[in-house]
Design a binder for these strands. Sequence first.
DNA 1: ACAAAAGTGTTAATACTACACCCATGC
DNA 2: GCATGGGTGTAGTATTAACACTTTTGT
Lengths: 247, 247
Amino acid sequence: MQVEPWSPPPVLLTVDLVILTLRRGRMCILLVERGEDPFQGRLALPGGFLNHAGEEILDAAHRELSEETALTAGWVHLEQLATYGDAGRDPRGRVVSVAHLAIAPRLPEPVAGTDAADAAWVPAEAVLSGEAELAFDHLRIVRDGIERARTKLEFSALATAFCGELFTIVELQQVYEAVWGTELDTRNFYRKVQAVKGFIVPAGSERRSTGGRPARLYRAGPQTALFPPLIRPVPPTAEENTREEGD
Amino acid sequence: MQVEPWSPPPVLLTVDLVILTLRRGRMCILLVERGEDPFQGRLALPGGFLNHAGEEILDAAHRELSEETALTAGWVHLEQLATYGDAGRDPRGRVVSVAHLAIAPRLPEPVAGTDAADAAWVPAEAVLSGEAELAFDHLRIVRDGIERARTKLEFSALATAFCGELFTIVELQQVYEAVWGTELDTRNFYRKVQAVKGFIVPAGSERRSTGGRPARLYRAGPQTALFPPLIRPVPPTAEENTREEGD
DNA sequence: ACAAAAGTGTTAATACTACACCCATGC
DNA sequence: GCATGGGTGTAGTATTAACACTTTTGT
């Protein structure tokens, strides 16, 4: 049927970043205010087009990450999340975005005056609840990214990416509590993480705090897969609650 | 720095498919023999370019799936896997592929004479071990796809996608055994899957086999997330074995 | 009756939760 | 000493794995 030479339709490729960090015990996400159309003035994920035809996708993600956060690469976790290419998602034409998930230890206030007109850490909760209206299909990407982070905390050592090089077990617990939005028992958490071989390794020294026994310091271990996993507690559902009464 | 109007570099977008099914108790993957350069004659994943600039990515994946398998869509699971865009992966230029994972009940022999010069079900094990040399970076995509399938079997109801509309519990178990490459205890598996509410629901009737007690038939239930999950057994490592002797 | 496949009961080991309790430091 | 936060012990409970056992069919 296709006789004359046919060439496939080209598309424009962007990378978008869901950058998560912890600030004052809450999980926050970096959003920028768009300086130009479309969606001028709206909040959006950091990101942009490939620089040149030969640029690797992962390199482009790293580039956007350092442009936005002035981050010394190496201490940041970066992985591909998913690809979003709905035909109508960008009014400029067929733009396909490869979204990435980045996790970093507490970062400085965003650097205004660079590429992004304005950048800010926004509590993840506020974004998920719809308080902030995002450009494009970025709300969906944020939802997928946060869900990915929550799940990976259960089965991988991703939580250490939220901490600096050295951290205490309680600090690690606060990561889990902030990302999951739950409270955990300090004592049980303490033993669970130590039961997973290679998750965290003692760093020898201790950290003094505002009074109280000093905490031992740890650093991330070689293990990336957690076994046994740290299962996220499920808030009891209404059905389960009514069960006991009914019987 | 960028004064004159700049336009982002366009790329070509393809979809590739990792199609898995069960044949004679083994997990197999559909591969086609490439009829043209590059990699003419090599085995590759089914896939192709977008048809036109407005075609949705998921639609393109569905189109390639039905071209290759003559599948009555609806009884097949299809999800996005990941995006592969290394600059050097395709000698024709900058080609970015959005890979998808498809799971289907036992399919008929592949239909030759259509788009693909030749298509065949190849045991997944043979591909993973490197017996078959694949074109492009398709081996990596296959590895990622199979790993995704193995993991999703633990936490989602994906296994039912390998079965027809009606199936017995033992048939479901054979899916797990084939995909994971392990053996499971029939009796414990029986109760585990029934303990997950909404995973499988009784279909009422029974199936007669070649002698022995008839098995009850089930169909896939509404639940997509499995709780509690069916954890994949880990073959004991050498370290764990030497531990007992050494101490 | 016997073989084969489906389905049930039981038990020992394991893992998890909740909480009492002890330890080390600053003030 | 005592408040504060770090770390340990333990008992009751839920899950799990292993396997003996019963049920229902075809031949």
